[in-house]
Amino acid sequence: MNNLLKIEKISKNYHSQQGEIEAIKNLSFDVNEGEFIAIVGSSGCGKSTLLNIIAGLEKQSSGTLKIKDSKSIGYMLQQDALFPWLTIKENVLLGLKIQKKVTNDKLAYADYLLDSYNLGEFKNKYPSCLSGGMRQRVALIRTLVLNPEIILLDEPFSALDYQTRLAVSDDVYKIIKKEKKTAIMVTHDLAEAISMADKIIVLTKRPAIIKKIYDINLTNKSNPIENRKAKEFAYYYDLIWKDIDAFVK
């Protein structure tokens, strides 16, 4: 398989006047083309820091990050972050505009994505007209239109209620697979991780190191909602649950 991203011994320390905090320590893993990777771990363990480093928003303190092309990374955040004063179409084109890449081909691609994912009739409407799930789809299309090879998802469904969350995660998964993208998702929802990912990386408490990496092999693997019915689901859940440093203080 084609190796898209290689992370080698990455560490990150934060500095403040109170002292130094080790957020992540010596993380190494590979991401192959077409893979869906989920990163789980207790809250505040540095999962988002890792994504920020991959996205180039933060610099690692040490270690190397080998990416085929740093421009080929798209980021989907905890909230849809749609701009209420821009129409849906303008929201989708925002990244292209900033990167000065608006071409007729790209415009046509944006239209194609909006039409194929049932947002065509809302192109000229404002985000306030859309439901939470639809907004999340717009946020994904805004990322896709930049044609990234890797999509980073930072707890992308955490702001949604449970039912919407299931439906939207199903939706987003199908779109990512259909557009043949590689994805790295950070989540605190173990069931969500197992139902979506090919590989799950379990991080320890801070400073985060890799505790274990699981390959998820479900029989009749299809979409996330169906995957929850697979007979291995409970087995993985049980196994990984014991690895996460989840505890009540």
Binding site: L57, A81, F83
Partner: peptide, 14 residues
Amino acid sequence: ADKIKLKLLNSFGA
């Protein structure tokens, strides 16, 4: 200003 939107724009290289 919304920090998440700020992060989004930074991820676009703004």
